[in-house]
Design a protein around this nucleic acid. Structure first.
Length: 757
DNA sequence: CCCGGTACTTAGAAGCATGCCT
DNA sequence: AGGCATGCTTCTAAGTACCGGG
C-alpha cells in the first residue's frame, strides 16, 4: 500500500476545494461519473456493465446515507484523515503490531500453484466413517430421544442432581495429569462412565433441549473501598474520592503499566466516562486527567497481587476449595437428564473496555451488571434460579430454541452476552461434529465448485465475476467472509468481501513471477494479513478491472457482500457458507500434511514434531498469529545452552568409548568388552537426548509467532488427529491436553486409525 | 433488499498453576 | 525451598450467519 500517491493527492485536492459538508457527496459524484466513463469504455469490450454502475451507485448512496445518519461531518473527516494517515504509513512505521515477514506465508501458500493452492490428492475411495451419514445437515425427520424415560428421570432427579449424575468433583488431578502413558490405573476414578451423547439420536425439530435447570450466574464481587492510606492525588494534592468515582479510578490504576493508558483515545474515553461517575464536586475539581496521580493505588494493587502469590499453602488451599464449591454449585446445569458443565457462569466484572487494535471505544467504562440486567432462560418446569436477595431478574423465559442459560446487554457496543455451556457439553459437541460433517460434504463437491467459479471469472456480469474472484480468495487463501461493520464502532478491520482498494496491490511481475497479488490488511482482532500470491492471469485481469477508477477507500468487490455470497453458496451445497471453506481447507491440509510429513521410521518426538508442523501449516494458512512470547529469546538461549552441554557430554562419552575399545582390543577379556557395550549405550542415549532437544528447539523456533491453538480447537477435524495417533501409536495425550480431550471426546471415541476426513 | 437484532463460533492475551531447575 | 519458564485455563472481544419485518 505504499506509493499510491496519485489517488491520495486527488483526494486531498477534493477536500481542499470543498471544505465543508458536501465534500463526500462531491467525491462520490465524481466517482460515479468516472464509473460511468469506465462503463462506456467497457462496453466496447465484451463486458456488460450497466449492472456495475447501478450497484456502485447504490453502494455509494449507502455511504452517503450513512454519513447523513452519522450527521457529524467532522467525524467523517476525522476518519478520512485517519485513513489517509494509514495509507501513508502503511507498512512503513510500526502501524501493525506484528509484522510477519517470515517467508513462511508465501512459501506454504504459493507452493505448487495449480490455481487452488492445495493440490488435492487423488482421492482413494473414501472409507466411510460410520457416522458420516447419520449427521446430515438439517435432516427433516423429527427424532426424539426416548422421551418418556427422559421425563420420568427428570422428575426424579430434579432436586438432587448436584450430588449425583456424571462428574465427580474430586478430580484429584493425580499429579501431572496422566501425560505420558496411555493406560493408567483407574482406581475409583471413573465409576460413572461418561455419557456418550454421540451414540444417541439427535433431536432435529429445532429445539435445543427439553429440560434445563440451573442456578443462574455468579455476580462480580461488590466493590470494596481502598484503605485510608491508599490515596489519590489531584494536581499534587490528596483528594478523597466518592465510592463510585474511586471504583472507576481503580480500574485505571490497575492498568497503569499497560501501554493502553498512554493512548489518547483510551484516556479520552476513560476520562469522559469517569466524570460521569463523579459527584458534581468531583466533576468540577477534576478536569484534567494529566493531573491525576494514581500511583498509590497502582502500588497497592501490585502489593496485593504479590501478597496473593506469597500466601501460605493452607490459605491457597482454602481459596481453591472455596472456588471449587462455587463451581460445584453454579458451574453446572441439568440439561435433558445430564449434568453439564457451564462455560462461563461468572458475569463479567466491571472495568475499562479494552478493544483490540485501533478501537475507537477503548477506555470506556464497562458497567457493572446487576440481576436486573439479566435474562434467565430455563425450563418452565425446572426450579428457577433465585436472584440475589432483594433483587429481581430482568426476565425469566423458557425458550428451548436457544442454548443459552442467561444473557445481558453490554453497554459498550450494545451487544448481547450469553452464558452458555462448556465445549465438552452435548449441545456444543453436536454442533462441532456437524460443522466437520458439513466440511466433509464440501470435500465431495469442492472440485465442482472450483470449476464453477473459474468459469464465472469469464462471466459477462460484473457481480458474478466479483463473486467468483472473492470465492477464489476464500478458498485459496482461507480468508474470512468479511461482513460489513458499522464505521466508528470498532477497529477498522476487513475480510474478503469488505476488502478495499487500499488493501491490495497488483504486480504484473514481481520476483520473477507473473501476476502477483499483494494483500495487506488488518483482519479479525486487528491481526495483519500480509501475503503475496501469484494468481492466474484471469484473476489478475479481473482484479485490475475491479480496481479501475476507484479510490483507495472503495470496496474492491463493490457488488458483493457476505449475504450475496452465502446465498450463492447455499445453492451450490446445502449448508455451505464462506466459513466452511476455512474449516475444509484447514482440515484437508492437516490430513495431507500428516500423510506427507510422517515418517514411519521416526521416533516419538520426531513424529510429534511432524504433527506440529502439519498443525503449523494450517495455522499459517489461517493466519493465526501470536505476539512472540516475551521470554522467547531467552528461552531459546536456554535451550541452546542445553544442546551445547549435551554435545559436550556426547563427545566426552565418545572419547570414553574409544578408549574402552582400545582397552578391549588389548585385553580381550569379558570385562572390557562389557565396558565397551555400556559406553556404546551411553553414547546412544545421549544422542537421543540431543535429538530430542534439537527437535524441541526447531519446533519452538518455527512457532515463534504462530499460534497453533486456534486451529487445533476450531478448524481441525479432531478425528484426523485421533486417527493419526492410533495409526502411529502416539498417545493422544501428546496431542490433546485434558480440556481438549474433553471437548473432543466424541472424536476420540469414534475415530478409527483409518479415518479419512 | 436492507437493517437491526440475535445467537453462536472463533480469537489472542491475560492470568494462573504447576512443575522443573538450581 | 524458591524462582521462574511453561502450558493450561479463563476471559471476553470480534467475528460469521441468519432471521424477520418494513
Amino acid at each position: 500500500m505504499t506509493g499510491d500517491h496519485g489517488h491520495h493527492q486527488v483526494e486531498s485536492g477534493a477536500r481542499l476545494n470543498d471544505s465543508h459538508k458536501h465534500k463526500d457527496k462531491h467525491k462520490d459524484k465524481e466517482h460515479r461519473h468516472k464509473d460511468h466513463k469506465k462503463d462506456k469504455e467497457r462496453e466496447k469490450s465484451k463486458y456488460t456493465n450497466s449492472e456495475h454502475r447501478d450497484s456502485s451507485e447504490k453502494k455509494h448512496k449507502d455511504r452517503e446515507k450513512e454519513r447523513v445518519k452519522h450527521g457529524e461531518d467532522s467525524a467523517e473527516r476525522h476518519k478520512e484523515k485517519k485513513r489517509e494517515e494509514k495509507i501513508k504509513s502503511h507498512s512503513s512505521n510500526g502501524k501493525h503490531k506484528r509484522e510477519k515477514e517470515n517467508g513462511y506465508v508465501s512459501h506454504i501458500k504459493t507452493e505448487e500453484d495449480n490455481g487452488y493452492g492445495y493440490s488435492p490428492k487423488p482421492e482413494k475411495p473414501m472409507k466411510r466413517d460410520r457416522d458420516e451419514d447419520e449427521l446430515e445437515y438439517k435432516p427433516k425427520k423429527i427424532k426424539v430421544e426416548k422421551e418418556n424415560k427422559v421425563k420420568k428421570r427428570k422428575q426424579e432427579e430434579e432436586f438432587d442432581y448436584y450430588d449425583e449424575d456424571v462428574k465427580p468433583k474430586k478430580k484429584s488431578k493425580g499429579k501431572k495429569d496422566d501425560s505420558a502413558g496411555g493406560g493408567k490405573k483407574k482406581a475409583k476414578k471413573e465409576p460413572e462412565e461418561k455419557w456418550k451423547w454421540w451414540e444417541e439420536e439427535r433431536c432435529t425439530d429445532g429445539s435445543k433441549w427439553r429440560f434445563l435447570e440451573h442456578k443462574g450466574p455468579v455476580f462480580a464481587p461488590p466493590y470494596e473501598r481502598l484503605p485510608e492510606n491508599v490515596r489519590f492525588y489531584y494536581d499534587g494534592k490528596v483528594m478523597k474520592l466518592s465510592e463510585q468515582a474511586e471504583e472507576v479510578a481503580t480500574f485505571f490504576a490497575k492498568m497503569l503499566d499497560h501501554e493502553y493508558t498512554t493512548k489518547d483515545i483510551f484516556r479520552k474515553n476513560f476520562f469522559k466516562d469517569w466524570r460521569k461517575e463523579m459527584t458534581s464536586e468531583e466533576k468540577s475539581k477534576i478536569s484534567d486527567l494529566n493531573k491525576c496521580n494514581f500511583t498509590e493505588m497502582s502500588e497497592y494493587f501490585k502489593a496485593q497481587s504479590e501478597a496473593r502469590k506469597q500466601m501460605s499453602k493452607e490459605e491457597k488451599q482454602k481459596n481453591k476449595e472455596e472456588n471449587e464449591r462455587l463451581v460445584e454449585e453454579y458451574g453446572f446445569c441439568l440439561m435433558d437428564n445430564h449434568k453439564e458443565r457451564i462455560g462461563n457462569f461468572r458475569i463479567e466484572p466491571p472495568g475499562l473496555f479494552r478493544g483490540r487494535g485501533d478501537h475507537p471505544k477503548m477506555g470506556m467504562l464497562k458497567r457493572r451488571i446487576r440481576p436486573e440486567d439479566i435474562i434467565i432462560n430455563c425450563s418452565k418446569d425446572s426450579k428457577h434460579p433465585k436472584p440475589p436477595p432483594g433483587t429481581k431478574w430482568k426476565e425469566v423465559r423458557h425458550d428451548n430454541k436457544v442454548t443459552w442459560l442467561a444473557s445481558w446487554t453490554e453497554n459498550i457496543q450494545g451487544s448481547i452476552k450469553y452464558i452458555m455451556l462448556n465445549p465438552s457439553s452435548r449441545i456444543k459437541g453436536e454442533k462441532d461434529w456437524q460443522k466437520y460433517e458439513t466440511a466433509r460434504r464440501l470435500k465431495k463437491c469442492v472440485e465442482k465448485i472450483r470449476a464453477q467459479y473459474r468459469e464465472d471469472w469469464k462471466s459477462k456480469e460484473m457481480r458474478i465475476r466479483q463473486r467468483a474472484v472473492a470465492l477464489y480468495f476464500i478458498d485459496k487463501l482461507a480468508l474470512r467472509a468479511g461482513n460489513e461493520k458499522e464505521e466508528g464502532e470498532s477497529a477498522d478491520t476487513v475480510g474478503c468481501c469488505s476488502l478495499r482498494v487500499e488493501h491490495i496491490n497488483l504486480h504484473p511481475e514481481m520476483d520473477g513471477q507473473e501476476f502477483v497479488v499483494e494483500l495487506d490488511f488488518l483482519g479479525k482482532d486487528s491481526i495483519r494479513y500480509y501475503n503475496k500470491i501469484p494468481v492466474e492471469k484471469r484473476v489478475f485481469k479481473n482484479l485490475q478491472l475491479f480496481l479501475e477508477n476507484k479510490q483507495l477507500e472503495d470496496d474492491v468487490f463493490d457488488r458483493l457482500n457476505t449475504s450475496i455470497l452465502n446465498k450463492h453458496l447455499q445453492e451450490l451445497m446445502d449448508g455451505l457458507t464462506a466459513k466452511v471453506f476455512r474449516t475444509y481447507n484447514a482440515s484437508i491440509t492437516l490430513q495431507q500434511q500428516l500423510d506427507q510429513l510422517t515418517n514411519p521410521e521416526d521416533n516419538l518426538p520426531a513424529k510429534i514434531l511432524s504433527y506440529n508442523r502439519a498443525n503449523r501449516a494450517v495455522a499459517i494458512l489461517c493466519n493465526h498469529q501470536r505476539a512472540p512470547p516475551k521470554t522467547f529469546e531467552k528461552s531459546m538461549q536456554n535451550l541452546q545452552a542445553k544442546i551445547d552441554a549435551k554435545k559436550k557430554q556426547i563427545s566426552a562419552a565418545k572419547k570414553e568409548l574409544k578408549s574402552a575399545k582400545a582397552d578391549a582390543k588389548a585385553m580381550h577379556d569379558e570385562k572390557s568388552k562389557k565396558s565397551v557395550e555400556t559406553r556404546k549405550k551411553a553414547v546412544q542415549r545421549l544422542s537421543e537426548q540431543l535429538m530430542k532437544l534439537e527437535v524441541q528447539a526447531t519446533d519452538r523456533e518455527e512457532n515463534k509467532q504462530i499460534a497453533l491453538g486456534t486451529s487445533k480447537l476450531n478448524y481441525l477435524d479432531p478425528r484426523i488427529s485421533v486417527a493419526w495417533c492410533k495409526k502411529w501409536g502416539i498417545p493422544i495425550e501428546k496431542i490433546y491436553n485434558k480440556t481438549q480431550r474433553e471437548k473432543f471426546a466424541w472424536a476420540i471415541d469414534m475415530a478409527d486409525n483409518d479415518y479419512q476426513f
